[in-house]
Design a protein around this nucleic acid. Structure first.
Lengths: 149, 149
DNA sequence: GCTGCAATTGTTAAAAATTAACAATTGCAA
DNA sequence: TTGCAATTGTTAATTTTTAACAATTGCAGC
């Protein structure tokens, strides 16, 4: 269940983002902050276009660059199945894998940790001598709210 | 390990496709056959553009429609993480979930069944009262061959 | 065999999404 | 304070996907 007190969430998220960038020596610049703000202010996955609209029509390159940055740093996740992005301010271990539950109606996204089940996904990679880079575990469907509407 | 005797593979795949379409009452038309042929002749995931190129530069709408058809029928899978398609001629149970191991270098794709591990992915959906539609389990990385090159 | 209808295709063109290229600016270290 | 790497601003192109609609096809019912 996503937390519903965005003010609280947001504050911690910002602190987390600040710390992460500082610690890793990345510049948490204005445009990056703006995009992060848009994403983190919503639990929904937003397309690049939606992000742009929310930032007084920011130019595509700026937005795409910020999205790429945030994704690489771990402050956002790319949801490939619907080609959208969702903010994230959890600390992830190296090799962390999350499962995303994506409502196709409202695009609300719930992120759940898969660490304990990860070995089940890895076993095939291991058996095939496959060296993993990125893992996407995405489930589209209808969230509880949207099932009733 | 993908089978390496495409002739044998292909023959069975065609039979499977014919039967599937006949049984479900779908028309296995020329353009659909062409796209299926392109996909099934390769274990690699191909982008829509790559498919088009292989079909004496087929027009986009025709290719996209065929890809959509094949995906819906189950004769192809959409690999969201790299926005590409891979042919498939396995019989899938209702609610079947596969894991795709996708080489980011050569785009070879291995499909493995996740049935036995599926409950691990579903447990969170259940707990969240989330009604699943599509499940994507994709792992990008380097296949054995590409690790050495 | 015709007729009519639904499914599919062919074609043109538009819309949407992403990236290239390069000049201007910024932040910081030497 | 100079120089360099990182980042941004800007324009425009490229790539990807879809819309719209006319033409065709396959087939069921007469």
């Amino acid at each position: 269940m996503p937390c519903d007190h965005h003010h609280h969430c947001a504050k911690e998220a910002w602190q987390f983002a600040e710390d992460l960038c500082a610690q890793k020596g990345y510049r948490f610049t204005d445009s990056r902050r703006q995009v992060f703000d848009v994403l983190i202010s919503s639990h929904k996955a937003l397309t690049a276009k939606e992000v742009m609209k929310k930032i007084n029509n920011g130019q595509p390159p700026i937005t795409y660059r910020a999205l790429e940055f945030l994704t690489q740093v771990g402050l956002a996740h790319h949801i490939a199945s619907i080609n959208a992005y969702v903010g994230c301010a959890h600390h992830h271990q190296e090799g962390h894998v999350a499962e995303f539950l994506i409502c196709t109606n409202c695009h609300e996204v719930e992120e759940v940790d898969l660490s304990s089940q990860l070995s089940a996904l890895m076993v095939h990679a291991k058996a095939s001598n496959f060296k993993p880079q990125e893992t996407y575990v995405e489930m589209t469907g209808l969230c509880g709210t949207c099932q009733d509407s």
